[in-house]
């Protein structure tokens, strides 16, 4: 029995030391993300008059730089494709808690009224949080959401990881997304890879009328939907 306990202790100590090597990987993870928006919020560096929250409708549909130009204010887009209202609220909380400048206007886009009740196709984008796990605030959120246990999370660096940490390449939000300096994420891909039932962009679609078209779509979704 003594031999068994001693061996387990030695194994645990060696693993504990091995685990600490991964601090470097954890701290490097945010640098690999192309999308730096949430990190800006966590660092308290957000400085905008108008902020846009929402899912893909907001991310792809509203070009913040166009609003900046038209309205002569600093606008920034914090919409995340596939995210739900819970996630938008989390971002808002981070905005308010981390010493960011409070915006004058917040634009919240909703996909459809049912988003306020339940919609399984959009969710709290937990995977956006994992690359930023070096920030205590992110770790706290994962604990609140019962993604991780506190004690194990405090003890082991590897336990804080998810599979995205193993990919050491630069990461876009998704393979077909691009992100503008203003935080908007217009999608320029063709829709051939998607099932036919997905919405096709209209034939007159081009970059010039992009914001107008998509703003109209947001409007129709929110008010007519």
């Amino acid at each position: 029995m003594k031999h068994f306990i001693v061996k387990i202790l030695i194994f645990s100590i060696v693993f504990f030391a091995f685990d600490k090597l991964f601090i470097l990987l954890r701290n490097r993870a945010p640098e690999l993300e192309v999308d730096k928006r949430m990190e800006v919020l966590l660092q308290g560096k957000m400085d905008a008059d108008l902020l846009i929250f929402g899912s893909s409708v907001g991310a792809r549909g509203i070009i913040a730089s166009t609003l900046s130009k038209e309205l002569n204010i600093k606008a920034y887009n914090l919409s995340y494709p596939g995210s739900n209202i819970d996630f938008h609220e989390y971002l808002l909380t981070q905005l308010l808690e981390n010493g960011n400048r409070k915006p004058k206007t917040i634009l919240l886009t909703l996909d459809e009224p049912s988003e306020l009740i339940l919609n399984s196709s959009i969710n709290f984008r937990l995977e956006r949080l994992y690359p930023l796990i070096k920030y205590p605030k992110v770790r706290e959120e994962l604990l609140v959401r019962e993604e991780k246990s506190k004690l194990l999370s405090d003890l082991f660096v590897l336990y804080q990881f998810n599979k995205s940490h193993l990919d050491l390449r630069k990461k876009n939000f998704t393979a077909h997304d691009s992100i503008m300096n203003c935080g908007s994420m217009p999608s320029y891909t063709t829709t051939t890879n998607f099932p036919a039932k997905y919405e096709q962009l209209p034939s007159h679609y081009n970059k010039e009328n992009e914001s107008k078209y998509l703003l109209n779509r947001v409007h129709s979704n929110v008010f007519d939907g």
Binding site: F11, V14, F15, F18, L126, R145, E146, E147, K148, L152, F156, L158, Y159, F161, N162, K163, H165, L166
Partner: peptide, 19 residues
């Protein structure tokens, strides 16, 4: 042998999300 066990534990830690 221990490296192999470490690999298994590492995978368990990394893929461990909500129960």
């Amino acid at each position: 042998r221990w490296s192999f066990y470490f690999l298994i534990i590492t995978c368990i830690f990394i893929f461990n999300g909500k129960e």
